[in-house]
């Protein structure tokens, strides 16, 4: 079931204390944290407020469907921690297009995908999901 707006707000409230510690203490080899910092300008990212809708397991790493939604966002960026390069895509939403998109991405192997949203007030939200792929998509 998709989280309701209330769930998302509650998650954000309870996560806000913990989120003051930089997300992801373990260093990924492809520079994903530096890439996220480059996107946010080093700002803290509160957990929650972004929905990342992706399969937990997928057979074809060459085309994994990913849907992101972040109500109130003006930009949403996708990152990965297991491909040679951490960037995936950055969506910039204007008038008439709500902050929601679906895209198909390549994952070289099982790894974690991150969605970081820049909200209209300039704050940042983040969520992540581990995705297991049975056939890598970058070989």
């Amino acid at each position: 079931m998709a989280p309701t707006r209330r769930d998302v707000l509650l998650m954000g409230a309870s996560a806000s204390a913990a989120a003051l510690i930089p997300v992801g203490a373990v260093e990924a080899s492809n520079g994903v944290w530096q890439a996220i910092d480059a996107f946010t300008g080093g700002a803290f990212r509160l957990e929650g407020g972004v929905i990342l809708d992706a399969p937990e397991i997928f057979d074809n790493g060459g085309a994994v469907p990913i849907r992101v939604v972040a109500e109130g966002a003006r930009r949403i960026a996708l990152f990965n921690d297991g491909n040679p390069n951490p960037g995936v895509a950055v969506f910039t939403f204007g008038r008439l297009v709500p902050p929601e998109a679906t895209i198909r991405i390549r994952l070289a192997g099982s790894q974690t995908v991150y969605a970081v949203a820049e909200m209209a007030d300039g704050t940042f939200r983040q969520t992540s999901q581990a995705i297991a792929v049975t056939v890598g998509g970058c070989g």
Binding site: G62, A63, V64, N80, N83, N85, G87, V88, A89, V90, F91, T92, F93, G94, R95, L96, V97, A101, T102, I103, R104, I105, R106, L107, G137, C138
Partner: peptide
């Protein structure tokens, strides 16, 4: 109304909805 910057991690035959 919307723009997307894509990296090589986007699949061949890019699909965006």
């Amino acid at each position: 109304v919307v723009s997307v910057d894509l990296e090589p991690a986007v699949s061949a035959d890019p699909y965006i909805q």
